[in-house]
């Protein structure tokens, strides 16, 4: 069915709550019924794809970042470090230099510019990466510790782990964080295809346009899935038609789907129509990725 070497599909959306996680989890479980698939939850601030599977944990490791650690015995309180830090993560409080790990971007400037080598870089835990397995489905997530703001390194690490651990699995899905800021860019930048999930409302259209602009910057092929179809209006359809953006599928609006989601259930197992839709998305997605980057 899938004949390309390996394909990575990022599932993204301009705003939260459009059904990104619903699509990622259902697609992954659906594909896993016939072949191996990797699902990586890259919404590291709030990963909740895992709520939809009963999977066995197979691996866990700590995610780290480098931060400076003050060595009082070497420090002369010259203040170079506090001026070198653009993020105010290293400040001087009276006779002490205090480091705020969550604010640190790991740029190394304070550490390497310190004339006394009094701020060596050390590893600091930022969260946990976990891998789970259920049948053919390999599910990987990273969860940032509360207060930790550096999502991008955790996303990069999770992608790297997925690729290195499962080089032979042909299909990898990314559940991306919402929005158009740095974390999203890190999540989609090296995907073969981006699926943008939206709703047929003015909100959906507005956020879709922003997401399309973002994806176009990287020249990644993309398609749209319109969720909750039947409610709202036709503007998203018209926009996709005008811009020649392929609409991969339209998932109908239904209270039943909302109920299944609220209970953490996979919808395609309860609603047969969704199976066909997932099959359609997958086939179209694979056809598009054959075209490659523009």
């Amino acid at each position: 069915m899938i004949d390309a070497a390996t394909i990575t599909i990022a599932i993204a959306s301009g705003k939260g709550g459009t059904g990104k996680t619903t699509l990622s989890t259902n697609m992954a479980a659906f594909i896993a019924e016939r072949e191996a698939v990797v699902l990586a939850d890259l919404d590291v601030e709030e990963p909740n794809s895992g709520l939809f599977f009963r999977a066995e944990p197979v691996h866990q490791e700590v995610n780290y970042k480098a931060i400076p650690q003050w060595d009082e015995s070497k420090c002369t309180l010259c203040g170079i470090c506090t001026k070198a830090c653009n993020y105010h993560a290293v400040i001087r409080l009276g006779p002490s230099i205090v480091v705020f790990p969550e604010l640190c971007h790991s740029c190394y400037a304070c550490s390497e510019l310190c004339p006394e080598a009094a701020l060596p870089m050390v590893q600091k835990k930022t969260g946990i990466l976990s891998e789970f397995r259920t049948g053919n489905l390999h599910f990987i997530e990273s969860r940032l510790d509360i207060g930790e703001e550096q999502a991008v390194p955790a996303i990069a690490k999770t992608k790297k782990y997925a690729a290195e651990k499962h080089p032979k699995v042909r299909l990898t899905l990314y559940d991306s964080p919402p929005g158009t800021s740095c974390p999203v860019i890190e999540a989609v930048r090296d995907a073969d295809l981006v699926i943008l999930v939206t709703e047929p409302t003015p909100f959906g259209l507005h956020d879709l346009k922003l997401a399309v602009e973002t994806v176009k910057v990287f020249g990644i092929p993309f398609g749209v899935v319109i969720n909750r179809y039947g409610t709202g209006n036709k503007e998203v359809d018209e926009y996709c038609h005008q811009e020649q953006i392929p609409v991969l599928a339209r998932i109908p609006d239904s209270r039943r789907i909302a109920e299944l989601y609220s209970a953490g259930k996979l919808i395609y197992r309860e609603i047969p129509e969704i199976r066909e839709i997932l099959e359609e998305i997958l086939n179209k997605a694979i056809t598009i990725t054959k075209g490659g980057r523009k």
Partner: peptide, 10 residues
């Protein structure tokens, strides 16, 4: 943009 709290604390 970032670290207003720590800068003011200093």
């Amino acid at each position: 943009a970032h670290g207003a709290g720590t800068a003011t604390a200093q």
